[in-house]
Design a protein around this nucleic acid. Structure first.
Lengths: 184, 184
DNA sequence: CTCCGAATAGAACGATCGCTCTAGAGCGAT
DNA sequence: ATCGCTCTAGAGCGATCGTTCTATTCGGAG
């Protein structure tokens, strides 16, 4: 279950717990996911990965100014964290940090998901006038900054890291050369 | 043991394992750390926190130009990760992300450590001419960017996120107003 | 030398976890 | 009606983990 993995992490969520949350017996879980916990986690990462990438155009399209959009993106994340009591926001980041060195299969899936995020998001930025090699670097910087700020904010129970990251990334994006947006 | 917690995380390192690494029996571990695994982790976080903060002046002092120093800081981290085979670099970030929502005591210690990092590092930046409220935001942005890039680089087995983060933070730091460095 | 707290030493316990195994319910095809 | 297959259902297994317990050794004070 995506929600459990997101708020609890990989190690802390048991398969009995996801069975209970899904109102399904353990046998059914293992029937549909013969690969066990690893396969469940991989499926969750893939589906949440596909869902989260849609947030990028959704949150950025309303802003003609990309710099303002980036700032608003981080502010929205900060507000969400405050309102949920500092709940974990991104299962991909948490799970990656947790099992990157102990679960090679899950790490590979996480790498897939992150890679597709970077591809899609940088294509979006190119569509908004950012030059191609720059776009990829911008996405890496923003994604890293976001994931890191999530951790700091959860640890400190404060939105200050997230908001500082947003201002920093907005200032950074303002420095990268930006042509006219491609027509849609 | 600091090294084990850094490369393996909190959940994945057992106290029997740290006993073996310390060449001490389990009884001795629990004699010196009656609080058990939690107390051991707290001690590790505090000591590594105190050690890591010293890296800031150590790595930044050689650079008269703060922007160049920031870039070199991230490049050094990227080189380290490559040379160690993408080993985890910062136990504080990993442990925080892992247990922030399940171990309140450890989370509090991590918050202490991160808070002292921010205090010390922003004091250093003020000493180098960054205005006071800006300095704190810069430190939060850099620390978050660093921790997030660690996760991405470990997941992707690539230093690209770390190097992109370094270029982004250098560009950002270049935009914050900077007075003359205070005399030392 | 005697004594006593500190530290060492590791066997053993209870809990938990991922997973397997067996049993049966549901259901379309023949 | 009967077969065969998918899916449900959960008890139970083996392994592992953090922790506790008892026994023993060490070393300085009296």
């Amino acid at each position: 279950m995506a929600e459990l993995l997101r708020v609890q992490g990989y190690g802390a969520t048991g398969v009995k717990q996801v069975a209970a949350a899904a109102q399904a017996p353990i046998g059914s879980i293992y029937h549909h996911f013969p690969g066990g916990k690893r396969e469940i986690a991989a499926a969750v990462l893939r589906t949440t990965g596909a869902a989260y990438i849609q947030l990028v155009p959704l949150l950025l399209d309303p802003y003609d100014d990309l710099v303002a959009g980036v700032g608003a993106f981080f502010e929205a994340a900060a507000d969400d964290m405050e309102n949920t009591g500092w709940a974990n926001m991104c299962p991909v980041g948490t799970v990656t940090g947790e099992v990157a060195d102990s679960e090679p299969g899950i790490r590979a899936v996480a790498a897939e998901v992150i890679g597709s995020w970077v591809d899609d998001a940088s294509a979006y930025l190119v569509g908004r006038g950012v030059a191609d090699p720059d776009a990829r670097a911008v996405v890496f910087a923003m994604l890293g900054s976001l994931e890191g700020a999530f951790i700091l904010s959860r640890g400190l129970r404060s939105s200050e890291p997230l908001r500082a990251a947003g201002r920093a990334m907005a200032a950074y994006v303002a420095t990268v050369p930006q042509g006219a947006p491609a027509r849609s």
